[in-house]
Simulated scan of single mutants.
Amino acid sequence: MDTMKRLGGDAFAPQTTYLNSASTGLIPAAGVAAMHEGVQATAAGRPLDHFRDVEAARAAFARLAGVPARQVATGASVAVYAGLIAASLPDGAEVLLSEDDFSSLVNPFHSRPGLKVRTVALEDLADSVRPGTDLVAFSQVQSADGRIAAVDAVREAARAHGARTLVDASQSAGWLPLPQADFLVAVGFKWLMGPRGITYLVVPEDLGGLTPLLAGWVAGEQPWDSCYGPVAELAHSARRFDISPSLYSYAGAVAGFELLDHLGIAAVRAHDAALADRFRAGLAELGHTPVHAPGSAIVSVPGLGARQPQLSAAGIEVSDRAGNLRASFHLYNSSDDVDRLLHSLT
């Protein structure tokens, strides 16, 4: 298969040159149809059992993460789960963060009273873990510029000092193999091509010592027997950290996972990276130097962020992030998309 053509086939029908998966991924037609069917059924008074979709999505993310489904919780945002982890830390615990990481990941630790928060450059994370560090929290791929963290080095440094790791895979899940971490969190609406309203959390086999502060009825071992009064028995799995689900979103999410399962992450990664490299090569010919992020599906070009409104008006969707023009490539993109963006930047 020519990796410079779209991998998505007829699953997508973009009406723009859409190069903005780092903000929101396109939803496959099958996902749109599933959500539409769910809404129509509810409007007609015949709601479908979308809780099966929740479990299907949980299992699919677990396969990507290489863990049993019992270690995956489903919720609504990275900030909620980062806050849950922050709340589990004792007073005086030290949390190590990377500079300019996404706010949903880092702000809960700054907001939690009693924590010692240190922030260092992404490339200095591994060398900055020290005795007394309790948690290292960082993104596998940086939202602003696509840089890929040295996850293995950070994890080994954390283990050497008795610290745990929290990795945000929101900008990597769906095109990059997911890393091993004590805690792993990722939204479902970017490269996983689901609707907004879904976030996945992977916890250790022993559930990581987290207190299920947000537990409601869906967190019960028998949810339908846990609707009234205190939940008598919390789920024995990560489901005790579930947040009441946005059911239509999960109906749409399953289609994205099915497409990724069919294509394989290795093929998607090769496709996305090839398009990003084509864009980098074209930028060099135009005299522009992107942020150094080899192998990333995200390309960020300093000084060109202000061009985003003009490009959008021309039907080319990219982002302006921290003053950078950010283009992000996924399976529904082709070399023609890259070339159109490059031509518009001349």
Rank of each mutant, 00 (worst) to 15 (best):
A169Y: 03
V120H: 06
S128M: 06
S139L: 05
E94M: 08
Q71I: 08
E94D: 12
L178R: 03
Y81P: 02
F51G: 01
R159Y: 01
F51V: 02
A121F: 12
V167D: 00
F138Q: 07
P113S: 10
Q140C: 01
Y81R: 03
R130D: 08
S111K: 04
A160K: 13
A62F: 12
D152C: 03
P131S: 14
L105T: 09
P131G: 04
R63A: 15
A87D: 15
L115M: 13
T133Q: 04
D134T: 15
N107H: 14
A173C: 14
S88V: 13
L105C: 09
A153I: 09
E99V: 08
L122D: 11
A121Q: 13
E123C: 11
G174M: 12
A65G: 09
A173Y: 06
P90T: 07
S77A: 15
P179Y: 05
G132S: 09
D49A: 14
A57P: 01
S98F: 09
V80G: 06
V129T: 08
A65L: 08
D134E: 15
Q142C: 13
R70D: 15
A150M: 14
R130E: 14
S170N: 12
R130G: 06
D100T: 09
E156D: 15
V78K: 04
V136N: 08
T165G: 00
D91C: 07
S172C: 06
L125K: 07
L135V: 06
L84A: 12
S111T: 03
P108S: 01
D127P: 00
A76L: 15
V120E: 07
E94C: 10
R58G: 02
A87L: 12
P108Y: 00
P113C: 09
L115Q: 11
V78M: 07
Q140K: 09
G75A: 11
G75F: 05
S111L: 13
E94I: 03
R58F: 09
G132D: 06
D124P: 01
A149G: 14
I148R: 11
D127K: 11
R52K: 15
H161P: 11
V154N: 01
A60R: 14
H161K: 15
A57H: 08
D100Q: 12
I148K: 05
A158I: 08
R155L: 02
G66C: 05
R130W: 10
S172F: 04
A163F: 10
E123M: 14
V154E: 00
L166W: 01
V54A: 01
G75C: 07
A87T: 03
F109V: 01
Q71L: 11
A137Y: 11
P113E: 13
S170E: 12
G162P: 05
P108G: 02
S111N: 11
A153T: 09
S128C: 03
S103L: 14
A69C: 04
P179C: 04
R70N: 13
V141F: 04
S172Y: 07
A57W: 06
